[in-house]
């Protein structure tokens, strides 16, 4: 039997996903026994032209991590989709935009101003910013263009077969994916239907061990460092915003159960909803200090209550702004 061919491609990523792939530990030896990694710029010296030379659909599986926000990433994603049989959006950034997706509340010009001029450690009086083309001693040098229209998902540029959520996806999820693909290559199993998200179909609350009360109520909202967090009680009940109710399970609620920290929502929306932010907004607002004397509460008091959440957009869409319904910030015409 021919060896399985794996590609590990990358867009806007911190490379944490690749590190997590190595975290499958000794199984890596088994994987390398039956598979060849044919493309992985993080691990080896390989260029686009080498991939271009490969026959179409010659790679069995491509794990693409990172969001798409450079011309070059889009080209790379399209190239690998052409050369691969299975395309996997590996990790939150490829799946829902991830942390780089938060760039959708600004634009290229403002990003350049912050990064190349305004930060405290930057000295750039002429405001030199990256150009897509420039000439140096008679040679033309090029750089890929950063999209002005914002961060794209892998799904926006190519057809994706499977999604592996998580920042990064955990070893258990990676092993599930490997099992399925190895069985398929060995003729011992079928592939799951296209579009499958390799995680749980339920919310994270199903995997959380904390005690949850029937009549839960948030009295005051705290940030995690402001209080001593009780490891037994539901975080929401303690006033800590936890994205668990609106987030897909599959990670075993590691942050909550082992880390005593709230969920930040890297698993993306559950199968039943369109918008993770809308879903958690609804959940939090529903338990925001509703008491028996509600009729005496004024609209001003409600305003104060909801204003405790200082950055709803950043909190509710931390890992999924480009995958949300509104996708990015707009500018209202001034009347």
């Amino acid at each position: 039997m021919d060896k399985l061919k794996i590609a590990i491609a990358r867009g806007a990523t911190c490379s944490g996903c690749e590190i997590e792939f190595v975290d499958i530990n000794e199984r890596l030896l088994d994987v390398l026994g039956i598979a060849d990694i044919v493309y992985a710029p993080t691990l080896m010296d390989i260029k686009h032209k080498d991939v271009e030379a490969m026959p179409d659909k010659s790679i069995d599986i491509c794990l693409y991590n990172g969001a798409v926000r450079l011309e070059e990433s889009e080209y790379e994603a399209k190239l690998l989709a052409k050369k691969s049989k299975i395309m996997v959006a590996f990790g939150s950034c490829a799946y829902t935009g991830g942390i780089p997706g938060l760039a959708n509340i600004t634009n290229r010009q403002k990003i350049f101003e912050t990064v190349y001029r305004d930060t405290a450690s930057t000295e750039n009086p002429d405001f030199v910013v990256p150009q897509t083309k420039c000439e140096v001693s008679g040679y033309e040098l090029t750089l890929p263009e950063l999209f002005d229209e914002g961060v794209k998902l892998l799904d926006d540029v190519v057809e994706v077969d499977y999604y592996l959520p998580g920042c990064p996806p955990l070893v258990g999820q990676i092993n599930t994916l490997l099992d399925v693909v190895i069985n398929w290559v060995g003729g011992k199993g079928e592939l799951p239907p296209k579009g499958t998200v390799i995680a749980s179909s339920k919310t994270l609350c199903e995997e959380c061990n904390r005690e949850k009360k029937e009549n839960m109520r948030i009295q005051k909202i705290y940030r995690p460092h402001e209080i001593e967090i009780d490891p037994e009680k539901c975080l929401m009940e303690q006033g800590i915003i936890c994205l668990g109710p609106a987030t897909r399970g599959g990670c075993g609620a590691k942050c909550i159960n082992d880390g005593n920290m709230p969920c930040r929502g890297c698993g993306g929306p559950t199968a039943a909803v369109l918008d993770q932010g809308g879903s958690i907004l609804s959940a939090i607002a529903s338990v925001l200090n509703i008491t028996d004397s509600e009729s005496t509460v004024t609209d001003e008091e409600i305003e104060k209550m909801v204003s405790q959440i200082v950055d709803p957009l950043g909190t509710f869409y931390r890992f999924g702004l480009p995958a949300s319904l509104l996708k990015r910030k707009v500018t209202e015409k001034v009347v």
Binding site: I105, G277, G278, L281, I284, A285, D299, I302, E303, V306, S307, I309, D311, P312, L313, G314, F316, L326, K329, V330, T331, E332
Partner: peptide
């Protein structure tokens, strides 16, 4: 009101 606050951040 919470959604209104968020829509403001979306630039609306």
């Amino acid at each position: 009101p919470l959604l209104k606050n968020m829509l403001k951040q979306f630039g609306m």
